[in-house]
């Protein structure tokens, strides 16, 4: 029989991984620190109060793990400015609102996929080329007859629109 922590672990591990990836921009390191985050969470689970959001509590532990890594590793930090971290937190906080039932993170992923599909042609081509096609900005720009700067701007706008689209879906109860 699954205990409460195990159920929460299954519900939140992908979210924590994505959060750490946002801060570290290193998938493998994010996976390692996700494990360490849950080990700490397991130890401190008794301290977790009902007045807190579990996801926010986990992200606090994960953020400390990332900070400790930055302090002890030779690697220069990518994101350490608290205002940037606030921006990252903002996205995850909003995604977590309105329901944390089973598969809540997967529902948001489906919303993300759906929102990519709703982009205009040029922005969708930029997103699909860079993320799904693993192409460089230069390759996408060449394929689409646009400058690198233009593709970069499309990506920036597209990420903002996708974020707003997913937030709207979360706010209104996801119906993908």
């Amino acid at each position: 029989m699954k205990d409460a922590f195990e159920i929460l672990f299954n519900d939140y591990r992908s979210m924590v991984g994505a959060y750490l990836h946002s801060l570290l921009k290193d998938r493998h390191l994010a996976e390692d620190l996700t494990q360490e985050t849950f080990l700490v969470a397991k130890e401190k689970f008794a301290d977790f109060g009902d007045d807190k959001k579990f996801g926010a509590w986990l992200r606090g532990i994960a953020r400390n793990k990332a900070l400790m890594h930055w302090r002890t590793s030779q690697r220069k930090p990518l994101v350490i400015d608290s205002r940037i971290v606030d921006g990252v937190d903002d996205v995850f906080d909003r995604l977590e609102r309105n329901g944390e039932g089973d598969d809540w993170w997967e529902m948001r992923r489906r919303a993300l996929r759906d929102c990519v599909g709703k982009l205009g042609d040029r922005m969708r081509q930029a997103i699909e080329g860079v993320y799904f096609g693993r192409k460089t900005l230069a390759e996408v720009s060449e394929a689409n007859g646009a400058t690198v700067a233009a593709v970069g701007q499309r990506l920036t706008r597209a990420r903002r629109l996708i974020r707003e689209c997913v937030e709207q879906k979360v706010k209104g109860g996801i119906d993908v």
Partner: peptide
């Protein structure tokens, strides 16, 4: 920071 988060979510997807 928001853009970084969205970047990771898309990569995660």
């Amino acid at each position: 920071g928001r853009q970084l988060a969205m970047d990771s979510l898309l990569e995660d997807l």
